[in-house]
Design a protein around this nucleic acid. Structure first.
Length: 487
RNA sequence: GGCGGCAUGGCCAAGUGGACUAAGGCAGCGGAUUGCAAAUCCGGUAUCCUGGGUUCGAAUCCCAGUGCCGCCUCCA
């Protein structure tokens, strides 16, 4: 079995082989931190998180680089408009770097909640100005860039492969269709490597061409090659950035190095909200902080992974409610399993289950190997879950050996690879002590109720169960002792 | 105008030439289980957008049509 990845560059699904045996270098376009992250960020970074997790599961030593854009990303296209960070900083009356810090923290907070692993390196554009200047110099020296009125532009006509990633040809582009062409540019498709700072511009640095700031596309080229090498394995990002962002990255990197840049390009699709595109201008952004008020982060993760990363998803209450129920079923089984595990012993039947689980593991891998088909992989998890539920609800004794084999299956595939199953199954309170106290209080009530049931005092037993239900505690009666869970 | 994608049960969604008499989730229906519930299990539920074509064989390939969506402004 081999991992296959759909490569935007070749428009084909290809067998993945790393550049350097046993190691994988991956760069994923990170956020521009000028606002709280939204549901679109979640889709992108959850998708790539599974890529990272699976590559590690396969035994690769992975270096995961994901940048933080903190300068150079402008509000408009074609190198015009204000810097997003600077604009927002002025609005909130803070230092640009203060703003960056604030939203960067917000970003990691939400990504942590979604159970995304942190990147190994999170380089910031402002921390790599000298490197960016060096790359520009190199491009000018090689004749791929030119200086115009203290700004520097990449000359697309000099790079014959321009358009190979996005499949666009220069002559097809209707220049100036949506924006006025900057008269400093020789060709309308030329893009800024360095922009001179206009009066009043705050975020600026000295350069050989005057005071200014780097173009947006440049940082990704510079930081990926600095940490991953001039040729590296995987470059990921949103499909909306194929052109012009990624196309420009390829151009400037390959022009400078005369070597292939990223070997596999992966692009995730976008999120719509109630069937409509999520856009700044439409004002229908769903921030993760808002989404989390309604749905748990793992529900959102489950919802995202239930569709292939390259397909769009539509965020709606109906879809999220369904995902919520789905993941609850999975969690219920795992919780029941772990409860049984703590009071079981022996190893009878372990080998039989081991064989069975190997087959499920094989099916799971086969799904993920097909360009990260997480939806199919989750189906495997649910097929197993049905079988486990049957086992758990049967009357017979189940050995500790069997239970722990199953538990470790969930930990490996549901936990390590997909990240949709929790380490601990009960999270109910702020700290350990708080959790313990609450659990004990609930247990006390339930124990009392079990005694009432034993003496067939149904009326009072039902009353307690209803009252607990009102408080969000679901009681499930079993033969002797009742079980409970948080709604 | 240029480029690209999608259309599968009530909803979401895998599958992209033969183990498809189409995975999985949600909802609903019937049954088992239960003191009643909850949870769980079992069962039934799809002319694979339309019309042609290729093939021994098509959800899957080709052509035409219809409808939606994205990129070429902003955005992951």
């Amino acid at each position: 079995m081999t991992l296959k990845i759909y490569n935007t560059l070749t428009r084909k699904k290809e067998v993945f082989t790393p550049f350097e045996e046993g190691r994988v270098g991956i760069y994923v376009c990170g956020p521009t931190v000028y606002d709280h992250p939204h549901i679109g960020h979640a889709k992108s970074y959850v998708s790539f998180d599974v890529v990272i997790r699976y590559l590690r599961y396969l035994g690769y030593k992975v270096r995961y680089v994901q940048n933080i854009t903190d300068v150079g990303h402008l509000t408009d296209n074609a190198d015009e408009g204000e810097d997003k960070i600077e604009k927002r900083a002025k609005l909130e009356k803070v230092e640009p770097m203060e703003l960056v810090e604030m939203y960067m923290r917000s970003y990691y907070e939400d990504m942590d909640a979604l159970n995304n692993l942190r990147p190994d390196i999170s380089p910031r554009a402002t921390g790599h100005i000298p490197e960016q200047i060096d790359l520009i110099k190199k491009l000018i020296d090689k004749g791929f860039a030119y200086v115009a009125n203290q700004s520097v532009y990449f000359d697309v006509s000099k790079f014959k492969d321009y358009g190979k990633l996005s499949g666009r040809r220069l002559e097809d582009q209707e220049s100036g269709a949506r924006v006025e062409v900057n008269p400093e540019k020789r060709h309308p498709a030329d893009f800024a490597l360095w922009k001179r700072a206009e009066p009043g511009h705050i975020m600026k640095w000295n350069s050989p061409w005057g005071v200014g700031f780097p173009g947006w596309h440049l940082e990704c080229s510079v930081m990926s090659m600095k940490y991953l090498g001039e040729t590296f394995d995987i470059h990921g990002g949103g499909i909306e950035n194929v052109f012009p962002h990624h196309e420009c990255e390829v151009a400037q990197s390959e022009a400078a190095n005369e070597l292939p840049f990223a070997r596999y390009w992966m692009h995730n699709n976008m999120v719509t909200v109630d069937g409509q595109k999520m856009g700044k201008s439409l004002g229908n952004f769903v921030t993760l902080k808002d989404a989390f008020k309604k749905y748990s982060p793992l529900t959102i993760r489950f919802f995202i992974l239930n569709t292939h990363y390259s397909s769009p998803i539509d965020y709606s209450d109906e879809a999220l409610d369904a995902a919520d129920k789905g993941i609850e079923r999975l969690h219920n089984t795992i919780r029941n399993l772990r409860e049984r595990l703590s009071s079981s012993e022996g190893t009878e039947g372990q080998d039989k289950w081991k064989t069975k689980l190997e087959k499920y593991g094989h099916d799971f891998e086969e799904a993920i190997n097909e360009d990260f088909n997480t939806a199919e992989a989750m189906a495997v998890l649910f097929n197993l879950t049905k079988e486990v539920n049957t086992l758990l609800s049967s009357e017979e004794e189940i050995s500790k050996g069997v239970l722990s084999e199953i538990d470790s299956f969930y930990r490996t595939y549901g936990g390590n690879v997909l990240g949709i199953t929790p380490e601990k199954t009960v999270q109910y309170g702020r700290d350990e002590e708080d959790i313990k106290l609450k659990e004990n209080l609930i247990k006390t009530l339930i124990d009392t109720r079990d005694e009432l049931r034993a003496s067939k005092n149904w009326e009072l037993a039902d009353k307690i169960r209803n009252r607990l239900s009102d408080l969000g505690i679901i009681v499930e009666d079993k033969k002797e002792k009742a079980a409970w869970r948080k709604k």
